[in-house]
């Protein structure tokens, strides 16, 4: 059984069609790149899988269940913005995640934060935007989730932070988990990916294995992306 199944998905925002008969099936144990230009429907798809939006038509199954409390317990979602209340301390967030997510590994989170030299007593309002993003990534990746949804995790961060984020993703996801990373910065993530999915105007354009593609075609997925999405 696939870990994630998106079947004939449609999502309208008024007259705007954000997803147009989108179909996708993901197995466990892969890092998958959801690649597409801005406005192609990546964030909408991720929000639908995370249970933040309801589809206009079609269905989503995560581990055989439709989005709801049961799927949210096994999906770890990193949105493209920080969602913390500024009055909280890092400690409060660790407590919050421990309270709500049975799969949250508190020790692992503290260990990752210590490596970043972030003490749990720090107030969030004292942290820079970049550090807050790292704290959020640590909390998301410290869960032993079945499916990780990472929406633009490397957009707008410096190259050193990019390396840290990608290292964190690779070193923390488990063999039976799947990571879906949405991005338009393919060059930076290509070596991290097992599979890739190209999305354009809300429809799936192409899907494949990144390594196989490079071997068979003698060009990178990034080069293919540039060709296909040239304006």
């Amino acid at each position: 059984m696939a870990l994630l199944d998106c079947l004939n998905l449609y999502k309208n925002y008024g007259n705007v069609l954000a997803l147009n008969n989108f179909n996708l099936s993901l197995e466990s144990g892969k890092i998958v790149g959801l690649l597409g230009p801005n406005g192609s429907g990546k964030t909408t798809l991720i929000k639908l899988i995370a249970g933040l939006l309801a589809p206009t038509e079609g269905a989503i199954f995560i581990d055989g269940k439709m989005p709801g409390p049961e799927t949210k317990a096994i999906v770890s979602y990193l949105p493209e913005r920080t969602y913390f209340s500024d009055w909280m301390r890092v400690n409060d967030l660790i407590e919050f995640f421990s309270d709500f997510y049975a799969d949250f590994d508190r020790e692992k989170a503290i260990e990752m934060l210590t490596r970043l030299q972030i003490t749990p007593e720090r107030k969030l309002k004292e942290l820079s935007k970049g550090t807050k993003e790292k704290v959020q990534l640590v909390l998301v990746m410290a869960r032993r989730a079945k499916l990780y949804l990472l929406d633009e995790p490397i957009a707008g961060v410096d190259p050193a932070s990019r390396d840290y984020i990608l290292d964190t993703i690779i070193s923390n996801y488990k063999e039976n988990s799947t990571v879906l990373i949405s991005t338009h910065l393919i060059y930076d993530v290509e070596q991290t990916l097992d599979d890739f999915v190209f999305i354009k105007n809300g429809s799936m354009l192409l899907t494949g294995n990144a390594k196989e593609y490079r071997e068979q075609n003698g060009q990178t997925v990034d080069a293919l992306f540039r060709e296909m999405f040239r304006v």
């Binding site: 249970g51 949210k72 913005r81 969602y83 913390f84 709500f100 997510y101």
Partner: peptide, 13 residues
């Protein structure tokens, strides 16, 4: 607001 991204992805109804 932004906090909604956490609120509505908690495993609760």
């Amino acid at each position: 607001k932004d906090e909604g991204y956490l609120t509505f992805t908690l495993p609760v109804k």
